Computed example of a mutant assay.
Amino acid sequence: MPSYAIIGGSRGIGLEFVRQLALSGDNTVFVTVRNKQKCTHLQDTINKLPHKNVHVLEADVVDKQAIKNAAAEVSRITGGSLDVLIYNAARLEFENILRGLLDYDSEEQLDEEFVQSLKVNVLGPIHTVNTFLPLLRKGAVKKIIIIGSEGGERDFVRRVHLSETAAYGITKAAENMVATKYAAELESEGFTVVSVSPGLVDVSSTYSELEPPPEGSVPKFKVIAKKFYDAFPKTRSLTPREAVERLLVYIESIGPADSGSFKPSLEFDTSTQ
């Protein structure tokens, strides 16, 4: 019975991972969220599933003790093992995610956003992998999947002329290196550790609980979107279902020979090149 832990699954891509994986009664699915009571989309999804194989764990990735508690609960339920860890958490604070390096109102604001992004996008996966590693070592699959982004890849940023999303992109670049470091560290143990991008995914249907975007942010987002479509005119946004379906096919197909790689979403469809 394969076991999966989705780190960050209350909405968007993470929520769809939970839904699709839990459709198989053979799977045991764990999902971490920051606040169980506020996860209405997740609870609605679980209520509609045919099997009772989803375990919701409350754990913020910046809270190391909470992550340890979540791993202990996974261990209790599975008997001490985990097959696949999918780190999907990311800092997506709407107002700051659109800012370039020259767009902050103060040096203090810039520092704060970079520190918070580092905690979630870099230290978050490090502490999570370290905590769950004893369970993964006893698993049958030994796969660690970091949900990354082209926004952290130099060639993509240059092609799109993407000066915005500075804190997000820089810390996601570091997150890709986190996956590579673990791939090197765990190579002799037969692990597969990769970073993969889901692509441009429309997750608006499960973000209705959030406050409206800050004033002036929508035009900035449209500017960024235009840069992307100008650089990749044949591409289109995906639904969460489409994105996760192809991600799961990829996750199932990879093995130790792929460890340390980054899979851009654009490689899934060569027509976008």
Score class of each variant (00 low, 15 high):
225 A>W: 09
113 E>P: 11
94 F>I: 02
145 I>L: 08
134 P>H: 03
81 S>E: 10
222 K>L: 14
120 V>N: 13
61 V>Q: 04
23 L>H: 11
134 P>R: 06
86 I>Q: 10
122 V>Y: 10
199 G>F: 01
27 N>Q: 11
116 Q>F: 11
18 V>I: 10
84 V>D: 04
241 R>W: 04
159 R>K: 15
135 L>S: 13
117 S>V: 01
178 V>E: 08
39 C>L: 03
14 G>H: 10
111 D>L: 15
137 R>S: 11
226 K>G: 01
69 N>D: 15
264 P>V: 10
148 G>E: 02
3 S>C: 07
212 P>T: 02
209 E>K: 00
208 S>I: 00
47 N>H: 09
32 T>V: 04
183 A>C: 05
25 G>M: 09
249 V>Q: 13
197 S>M: 04
55 H>N: 08
219 P>Q: 03
222 K>D: 14
189 E>T: 01
105 D>Y: 03
222 K>Q: 15
138 K>Q: 13
147 I>M: 07
248 L>P: 14
132 F>W: 11
72 A>Q: 14
160 V>A: 12
171 T>A: 06
188 S>D: 12
210 L>S: 04
212 P>I: 03
179 A>W: 09
81 S>M: 11
200 L>K: 00
99 R>Y: 15
72 A>M: 07
230 D>I: 05
208 S>D: 00
62 V>W: 03
41 H>S: 07
172 K>T: 13
174 A>N: 06
218 V>W: 08
6 I>M: 05
194 V>F: 04
263 K>A: 10
155 D>H: 05
191 F>K: 07
36 K>D: 01
161 H>Y: 07
144 I>R: 12
138 K>G: 01
37 Q>S: 14
233 P>N: 04
108 E>F: 01
11 R>A: 02
151 G>R: 05
149 S>M: 06
1 M>L: 12
69 N>C: 09
4 Y>W: 15
52 K>Y: 02
181 K>C: 13
103 D>C: 10
211 E>A: 12
261 S>C: 04
156 F>T: 11
249 V>L: 12
212 P>M: 03
254 I>M: 07
68 K>T: 14
108 E>H: 04
144 I>S: 14
11 R>I: 00
156 F>D: 11
97 I>R: 06
160 V>I: 13
13 I>C: 10
2 P>G: 08
90 A>Y: 05
188 S>N: 07
238 L>P: 00
116 Q>C: 03
1 M>I: 08
3 S>K: 11
112 E>K: 15
102 L>A: 12
105 D>K: 12
203 V>E: 04
219 P>L: 08
193 V>G: 09
249 V>D: 13
78 T>S: 14
168 Y>C: 09
124 G>T: 08
161 H>N: 14
139 G>S: 05
